[in-house]
Design a protein around this nucleic acid. Structure first.
Lengths: 135, 135
DNA sequence: GAGTAGTTGCAATTCGTTCGCAAGTGGCTT
DNA sequence: AAGCCACTTGCGAACGAATTGCAACTACTC
């Protein structure tokens, strides 16, 4: 990460390092959860620092956010974005699906609407298998 | 709408009527925009009344919300939900696509993950044709 | 090792949304 | 036609998530 940052005149601070480490460790997490993990090693970190670092890490391309539900964003390490999210509207569970399942869909949208789809950014909303059973 | 409401012991108030009318008129709109339209005919309406009516109209099935972007929900008349949304991450434009384009995708997700997809609830994120050209 | 520009912590602020409560009013009942 | 009661409204306060201004701090360049 040193290069990505320094090339842009940005700095490698302990806080920034810990935020990235937390994102990588957690898989998908919101800023609050990330702050909690960071605080284990750096208790004094401020929430706004977490927000600001997530933003810069995203600009640099080390981190990506996606929207899984009504609330805020959740963050992923850039190298982990190889799945799409299936969010159950009933129980709120978040499943994952292979990106390939959407390949054909992405192609159709590209052909018919000249729209280049990023399937990972928004979750796929619906009802999970467990909730379908208990209807 | 009278029946949908009264059958549940709910009332048909002028405010409620105007909120529904505004949703139908606007196509997709957020609560703030809906309030603006309602205020043309009923200047005193309170924002929280709009929120509450959107919620009850949704419970009754006359209105549906979906998430098009980072911020809050946008509301549609229930009878208009026959398209999915293509939101451009660069320019913010919101396009529409036929639901059929997703039919195969929905089937694959159902078969592979036993997950029943509601494609209209979350937008499809990506880059629109115009922004693709100007890269 | 010193200087500078990027960064942090803090507190205050914003935005969108929800809440509690008292006053108001639809609509069933008589 | 009038009354009653539960549903609604408007208002202000409160809320959570995210953002901002600013002074103190510090990573990095030379």
């Amino acid at each position: 990460m040193t290069d990505e940052l320094r090339d842009r005149g940005l700095r490698l601070t302990p806080q920034r390092e810990l935020v990235l480490a937390a994102v990588r460790e957690l898989g998908h997490a919101n800023p609050e959860e990330i702050a909690e993990v960071v605080r284990l090693k750096h208790p004094g970190i401020n929430l706004s620092t977490v927000y600001r670092n997530l933003e810069t890490l995203e600009n640099v391309g080390l981190v990506i956010h996606s929207h899984l539900g009504h609330g805020g964003a959740t963050y992923h390490a850039a190298e982990d974005i190889n799945h799409l999210h299936l969010v159950c509207g009933k129980c709120g569970s978040v499943g994952e699906a292979s990106i390939e399942t959407a390949a054909q869909f992405v192609n159709v949208i590209a052909d018919d609407y000249s729209f280049k789809t990023d399937v990972t950014h928004f979750a796929i909303h619906g009802t999970c298998s467990r909730c379908l059973e208990t209807l």
